[in-house]
Design a binder for these strands. Structure first.
Lengths: 111, 111
DNA sequence: TCCTATCCATAGATAGTCTATATATACGCC
DNA sequence: GGCGTATATATAGACTATCTATGGATAGGA
């Protein structure tokens, strides 16, 4: 993270799954959604996004379908599978647990 | 992170600096402190800890000194430098900002 | 016509973590 | 005296995920 962490490593898959849980979206739309919801704090680079989507496809957590966008452009729409929704729940709970643990370490009180 | 994330990548330096802000400690003690404060959720492996301490030394955020422990064993005690305390503040604020941003993305409300 | 935003994707560099290994000693127990 | 466990430092190599850089294509507005 020394230079410019646009993301917290390890959270991208969870963020994508959470975004797709709202509605199916194409890759570019996922990146925009995350950027906007985070008030520009989180930026998903293409070199992170597409490999991540490939991972999620391979693991069966999302499925993809080529469609036309509202503006008549070809795009690949991703949506959550049942397994993906389950995985999202798992990642969310692990994330919460880890954040809570980090919070305890960052506290002032000594052991 | 697919397998067994003992830590959230990118947070280790911050956790070490925060631990040393309480009191100087040797490496083994830092690992124990983080493990205990986090209720065993966070485990700092040696292969992560010592490279991290080297990074922090090189960047001048901590300094080291060989001493005897209370149990009469030789150990290298690390302590925060002024620059390290400043760096800790920076990392804490960036972390808070990022966690808040992730929280917004994970929310239910749409954009 | 040109420029910007939209859209997909990959190759290679970089960084940070984990696994495995090596070394060494204090201390309690049998 | 010998053994096991906890204490203590450190490195090499594997692995994974991210970022940088690049390439291509098209819709629509200026």
């Amino acid at each position: 993270m020394a230079r410019k962490p646009e993301l917290m490593p390890g959270t991208l898959d969870m963020l994508i799954l959470r975004t797709l849980a709202r509605a199916p979206l194409h890759g570019y739309g996922i990146a925009l959604s995350i950027k906007r919801l985070s008030d520009d704090v989180l930026t998903v680079e293409e070199g992170s996004l597409y490999p991540a989507l490939q991972r999620l496809l391979v693991q069966g957590w999302v499925k993809a379908e080529w469609k036309k966008t509202e503006t008549n452009r070809r795009a690949r729409y991703y949506s959550l599978t049942v397994a993906g929704r389950k995985q999202l729940g798992l990642e969310l709970s692990q994330f919460e647990q880890m954040i809570a643990a980090i919070g305890r370490v960052l506290q002032d009180a000594d052991a």
